[in-house]
Nucleic acid binder design. Structure first.
Ligand code: MN
Ligand code: MN
Ligand code: ZN
Ligand code: ZN
Lengths: 172, 172
DNA sequence: CACCTAATTTACAACGATTGTTACTTACTA
DNA sequence: TAGTAAGTAACAATCGTTGTAAATTAGGTG
C-alpha cells in the first residue's frame, strides 16, 4: 500500500520492468534485502521481491499471501522459493516465523518485543505493546532449569469487525 | 436390569480388559467422561478410554500420542475418533487444544490460567505459573477494540536435557 | 564479453496433521 | 422387531510445508 517504494506495477510481461527496476540498485541499508546480501546469499530478483513485499505488508503476512502478491508481478515465482527465502531470512534473524494457530505460520517483521492480538474468526493479527516490566516478571521457577530464549504474549478473541458480525447474528 | 452404569456396547477383541475396568462404574464426578455424558453425548468405550488417557497423561499429549496409547488397549480405535473426541471435549470446554508451534496441537487439560515453557528441540511443554497481576496488565490499547477471550504466555527455549546435549556438542 | 561453477529456482512428489465422506455398527425407541 | 439417530472405521482429501532433482542463473574469472 505504501507508494514510496519502487514501482513494481504488474501488467502483462512484468519481468523485464522488474529486472530493470532491480538491476544496479543497492538495496537500502538495513533492509531485508541488504541483510540477505551481507550474509553471503545471492540477492536474486525473487528474494529481492519477497523482501520488498514483506516490508510493504501489514506486518504479518502468510507465505501464501506473499506468494500471491509475488506472482502478480513475477508469475514464475514458486511457492517453494517463498518458503525457502522466509526460512533463510529467519535463519539470519531478519524476520521471525510465528505460529499463532491460524493454519500456517506468519512472517513477523517487527523484531521489537511486543504481543499479539489474534482474531479467532478471521485470523487477523495485530501488534500490542507489552510492558517490559511484565516481560521481566515472566520468569521460570528456578527448579525447572529452562533456558528461555523468547517470550510470547498472545491474546485471543474477536476483532472489531468479527465481533460486530457475530453481534448481528445474536442480537438482531 | 436397569443397571446404574452406562450400557457399553461390546466391542471387538482386546476390549475385555477395558470393559472390565468400565463396567458398572460411574465416571467420577467432574471427570472428562462425566462431562461428556452430561452434555448429552454418548459415553462410548472409545470416548471413555480417551478421557482416561488424557487424565493419566503428562498434561499435554498430542492426538497421535493418545492414539498410540489407545490402540494398545483397543486396537480398533481410529485416529479420526481421537480427533473427533478431542474436538468434542474442546467444544464443551472440558479441555483446550493449544498450538505451540511444535507440529500438531496438544491437549491442554489444565484449565487454570498458566503459562507454558516450550522446548524448541524436543517440543516438551511444561506449565508455569503466571502471576495473575500480570494477566491483568496484558490489556489491549483502547483504540483497538478487541474482545479478548483468552490470554497466552509462552516462553520458548531449551529444556534442561536439550540444553545439556547442546552444551556437549559445542564444548567437545 | 564469454565462460564457469556453485547457488538458486522450478516443477513436482512427498510428508505430517487434520478433516470430509460414507458405509457399517451400535444404541435406544416404538 | 424394525426404525432412527448417533458414532465409528476406513479411506480419500486437504492444507501447509519440505524433499528431490533437473534446469537456470548470479557473480566471479580470463
Ligand atoms: Mn507482530
Ligand atoms: Mn498447560
Ligand atoms: Zn476478525
Ligand atoms: Zn528439550
Amino acid at each position: 500500500m505504501a507508494k514510496t517504494g519502487p514501482r513494481l506495477h504488474a501488467g502483462g510481461a512484468g519481468q523485464r520492468e522488474l529486472n530493470a527496476a532491480l538491476s544496479g540498485r543497492e538495496p537500502d541499508h538495513g533492509s531485508l534485502a541488504a541483510l540477505l546480501r551481507q550474509s553471503g546469499l545471492k540477492l536474486t530478483p525473487q528474494r529481492h521481491l519477497i523482501c520488498q513485499l514483506i516490508e510493504n505488508s501489514d506486518g504479518h503476512p502468510t507465505a501464501e499471501e506473499l506468494y500471491e502478491s509475488a506472482t502478480a508481478v513475477m508469475p514464475s515465482m514458486s511457492l517453494k522459493t517463498v518458503y525457502t527465502t522466509l526460512n533463510d531470512l529467519a535463519a539470519l534473524n531478519a524476520i521471525r516465523l510465528v505460529n499463532v494457530g491460524t493454519g500456517g505460520f506468519r512472517v513477523e517483521s517487527n523484531l521489537e518485543p511486543h504481543g499479539h492480538l489474534v482474531c479467532r474468526m478471521c485470523g487477523t493479527i495485530m501488534d500490542i505493546p507489552v510492558n517490559p516490566a511484565i516481560e521481566e516478571e515472566l520468569a521460570v521457577p528456578p527448579e525447572i532449569e529452562f533456558e528461555v530464549e523468547q517470550r510470547e504474549v498472545t491474546l485471543r478473541g474477536l476483532c472489531r469487525s468479527c465481533a460486530s458480525k457475530q453481534g448481528e447474528g445474536a442480537g438482531a
